[in-house]
Protein backbone atom coordinates (compact mmCIF):
# COMPACT_ATOMS: atom_id res chain seq x y z
CA UNK A 1 0.00 0.00 0.00
CA UNK A 2 2.85 2.36 0.78
CA UNK A 3 4.38 1.68 -2.63
CA UNK A 4 1.08 2.29 -4.42
CA UNK A 5 0.53 5.49 -2.44
CA UNK A 6 3.97 6.65 -3.55
CA UNK A 7 3.10 5.69 -7.10
CA UNK A 8 -0.10 7.68 -6.88
CA UNK A 9 1.79 10.90 -6.33
CA UNK A 10 3.70 10.44 -9.60
CA UNK A 11 0.81 9.53 -11.89
CA UNK A 12 0.38 11.51 -15.08
CA UNK A 13 -2.84 12.91 -16.54
CA UNK A 14 -2.88 10.34 -19.31
CA UNK A 15 -3.10 7.33 -17.01
CA UNK A 16 -4.97 8.99 -14.14
CA UNK A 17 -8.31 7.37 -14.95
CA UNK A 18 -6.83 3.88 -14.89
CA UNK A 19 -4.93 4.67 -11.73
CA UNK A 20 -8.12 5.99 -10.10
CA UNK A 21 -9.75 2.54 -10.35
CA UNK A 22 -6.81 0.98 -8.52
CA UNK A 23 -6.83 3.62 -5.81
CA UNK A 24 -10.51 3.47 -5.03
CA UNK A 25 -10.03 0.94 -2.20
CA UNK A 26 -7.50 3.21 -0.58
CA UNK A 27 -9.79 6.21 -0.80
CA UNK A 28 -12.43 4.06 0.88
CA UNK A 29 -9.95 3.47 3.69
CA UNK A 30 -10.34 7.14 4.55
CA UNK A 31 -14.05 6.62 5.24
CA UNK A 32 -13.64 5.05 8.71
CA UNK A 33 -11.20 7.81 9.62
CA UNK A 34 -13.58 10.54 8.54
CA UNK A 35 -16.54 8.88 10.23
CA UNK A 36 -14.72 8.47 13.53
CA UNK A 37 -13.61 12.11 13.34
CA UNK A 38 -17.15 13.26 12.61
CA UNK A 39 -18.77 11.27 15.41
CA UNK A 40 -16.08 11.31 18.08
CA UNK A 41 -13.69 14.09 17.22
CA UNK A 42 -9.96 13.77 17.61
CA UNK A 43 -10.26 10.83 20.03
CA UNK A 44 -12.02 8.78 17.37
CA UNK A 45 -9.63 9.76 14.61
CA UNK A 46 -6.56 9.10 16.74
CA UNK A 47 -7.88 5.70 17.79
CA UNK A 48 -8.46 4.51 14.23
CA UNK A 49 -5.32 6.06 12.84
CA UNK A 50 -3.27 4.65 15.68
CA UNK A 51 -4.54 1.10 15.22
CA UNK A 52 -3.99 1.36 11.49
CA UNK A 53 -0.39 2.47 11.82
CA UNK A 54 0.59 0.19 14.72
CA UNK A 55 -1.23 -3.00 13.79
CA UNK A 56 -3.34 -3.08 10.66
CA UNK A 57 -0.97 -1.70 8.05
CA UNK A 58 1.96 -3.93 9.09
CA UNK A 59 -0.36 -6.91 9.20
CA UNK A 60 -1.78 -6.07 5.78
CA UNK A 61 1.73 -5.72 4.35
CA UNK A 62 2.78 -9.09 5.75
CA UNK A 63 -0.28 -10.84 4.42
CA UNK A 64 0.84 -9.77 0.96
CA UNK A 65 3.41 -12.58 1.28
CA UNK A 66 0.68 -15.08 2.17
CA UNK A 67 -2.02 -14.37 -0.40
CA UNK A 68 -2.62 -12.29 -3.49
CA UNK A 69 -6.41 -12.41 -3.15
CA UNK A 70 -7.33 -8.85 -2.05
CA UNK A 71 -10.34 -9.83 0.03
CA UNK A 72 -8.44 -12.62 1.81
CA UNK A 73 -5.58 -10.29 2.44
CA UNK A 74 -7.78 -7.55 3.89
CA UNK A 75 -9.99 -9.67 6.14
CA UNK A 76 -7.39 -12.13 7.41
CA UNK A 77 -4.88 -9.38 8.12
CA UNK A 78 -7.44 -7.37 10.11
CA UNK A 79 -8.48 -10.23 12.35
CA UNK A 80 -5.24 -12.14 12.77
CA UNK A 81 -3.16 -8.98 12.89
CA UNK A 82 -5.11 -7.55 15.80
CA UNK A 83 -4.70 -10.69 17.93
CA UNK A 84 -1.15 -11.71 17.05
CA UNK A 85 0.05 -8.11 16.88
CA UNK A 86 -1.25 -7.53 20.40
CA UNK A 87 0.37 -10.75 21.59
CA UNK A 88 3.72 -9.75 20.10
CA UNK A 89 3.54 -6.35 21.80
CA UNK A 90 2.82 -8.20 25.07
CA UNK A 91 5.95 -10.31 24.64
CA UNK A 92 8.04 -7.22 23.85
CA UNK A 93 6.62 -5.60 26.98
CA UNK A 94 7.86 -8.54 29.07
CA UNK A 95 11.35 -7.25 28.18
CA UNK A 96 10.90 -3.48 28.24
CA UNK A 97 8.21 -3.21 30.96
CA UNK A 98 6.75 -0.07 29.36
CA UNK A 99 3.68 -0.54 27.23
CA UNK A 100 4.10 2.70 25.30
CA UNK A 101 7.74 1.99 24.54
CA UNK A 102 6.88 -1.59 23.61
CA UNK A 103 4.26 -0.38 21.16
CA UNK A 104 6.79 1.90 19.47
CA UNK A 105 9.47 -0.79 19.34
CA UNK A 106 7.01 -3.40 18.09
CA UNK A 107 5.76 -1.07 15.37
CA UNK A 108 9.32 -0.45 14.20
CA UNK A 109 9.99 -4.19 14.32
CA UNK A 110 6.86 -4.95 12.30
CA UNK A 111 7.77 -2.54 9.53
CA UNK A 112 11.43 -3.51 9.67
CA UNK A 113 10.57 -7.19 9.42
CA UNK A 114 8.29 -6.51 6.46
CA UNK A 115 10.87 -4.55 4.49
CA UNK A 116 13.56 -7.02 5.46
CA UNK A 117 11.48 -9.96 4.30
CA UNK A 118 10.56 -8.22 1.07
CA UNK A 119 14.18 -7.48 0.36
CA UNK A 120 15.20 -11.05 1.14
CA UNK A 121 12.48 -12.52 -1.06
CA UNK A 122 13.30 -10.05 -3.82
CA UNK A 123 16.99 -10.99 -3.70
CA UNK A 124 16.11 -14.68 -3.72
CA UNK A 125 13.83 -14.26 -6.73
CA UNK A 126 16.51 -12.32 -8.62
CA UNK A 127 19.09 -14.98 -7.78
CA UNK A 128 16.79 -17.77 -8.98
CA UNK A 129 16.10 -15.89 -12.22
CA UNK A 130 19.82 -15.35 -12.78
CA UNK A 131 20.50 -19.11 -12.29
CA UNK A 132 17.83 -19.98 -14.82
Amino acid sequence: MIETLLGFTTMTASNSQNRMKDFLPYFLLAVPLLLSLLLFGSAGLRTFLGFMVVIFIPSYLFFGFVTKDPLERLILSLFIGLTLGSLLIWYVDRIFQSLRLSMIISTLLFYGAYFGTRRFLGARTRSQSANE
Binding site: A43, R46, V54, I89
Partner: peptide, 19 residues
Protein backbone atom coordinates in the same frame (compact mmCIF):
# COMPACT_ATOMS: atom_id res chain seq x y z
CA UNK B 1 -4.54 -9.77 23.42
CA UNK B 2 -8.17 -8.71 23.73
CA UNK B 3 -7.69 -6.69 26.92
CA UNK B 4 -4.54 -5.12 25.52
CA UNK B 5 -6.72 -3.66 22.80
CA UNK B 6 -8.44 -1.51 25.42
CA UNK B 7 -5.05 -0.26 26.61
CA UNK B 8 -3.88 0.46 23.05
CA UNK B 9 -7.09 2.36 22.38
CA UNK B 10 -6.60 4.57 25.45
CA UNK B 11 -2.95 5.21 24.60
CA UNK B 12 -3.54 5.85 20.90
CA UNK B 13 -6.84 7.69 21.33
CA UNK B 14 -5.64 9.80 24.22
CA UNK B 15 -8.80 9.38 26.33
CA UNK B 16 -10.04 6.93 28.92
CA UNK B 17 -13.56 6.04 27.80
CA UNK B 18 -14.35 6.76 24.15
CA UNK B 19 -11.36 5.03 22.46
Amino acid sequence: PYNLGYAFAQILGGERIIP
